[in-house]
């Protein structure tokens, strides 16, 4: 964890590939942190859902990565960065119900193809940067106050 300045908080949470046992822990931690910051409960809820989906994407699809939480007086940013493999077709990946999860993963009740769409639904601003072979960064922004207000 590094605080860039006094008014912004940044926390990193490592997520391992196929670490199903720890799945959900980052979302719980993020929720606890936001609650302790006194963030309104509907925003905490949205951030928690987005974090959970981000975390599960890292567990299921990535070669491992991290979730970064950034909070300042204006916004909550949940960023999931991984080390690959990258998403070849982002538009397809965003489609509800589309998933590349393996049968084993689906048997565990995951891989319904709702992760990214859910994250977008929870966010005020949503962005995916991905390059095959290098990795993916999914950024979810939830505004605490209207920008500029």
């Amino acid at each position: 964890m590094t605080a860039r300045d006094e008014h912004a908080l940044e926390m990193d949470f490592a997520v391992g590939r196929h670490d199903f046992a720890a799945a959900g822990e980052v979302a719980s931690r993020v929720k606890q942190v936001l609650r302790q910051l006194g963030i309104a409960s509907d925003l905490v809820r949205r951030a928690a859902v987005a974090t959970y989906e981000a975390e599960m994407n890292l567990v299921i699809h990535s070669n491992g990565g991290k979730v970064v939480l950034r909070v300042d007086s204006e916004r909550i940013v949940v960023e999931a960065c991984d080390l690959g493999p990258g998403i070849p077709d982002i538009e397809l990946a965003m489609r509800e119900g589309y998933s590349t999860a393996s049968d084993e993963v689906r048997e565990m009740g995951f891989g319904a193809g709702m992760g990214l769409p859910n994250m977008r639904r929870c966010s005020d601003s949503f962005k995916i940067d991905s390059s095959v072979g290098r990795g993916t960064t999914v950024t979810t922004v939830i505004y605490i106050a209207e920008p500029g207000s």
Binding site: M1, E6, H7, V33, Q36, L37, G38, S73
Partner: peptide, 10 residues
């Protein structure tokens, strides 16, 4: 306040 909560969390 959010500002002081952020500072304290850090």
């Amino acid at each position: 306040s959010l500002e002081s909560a952020i500072a304290r969390m850090g």
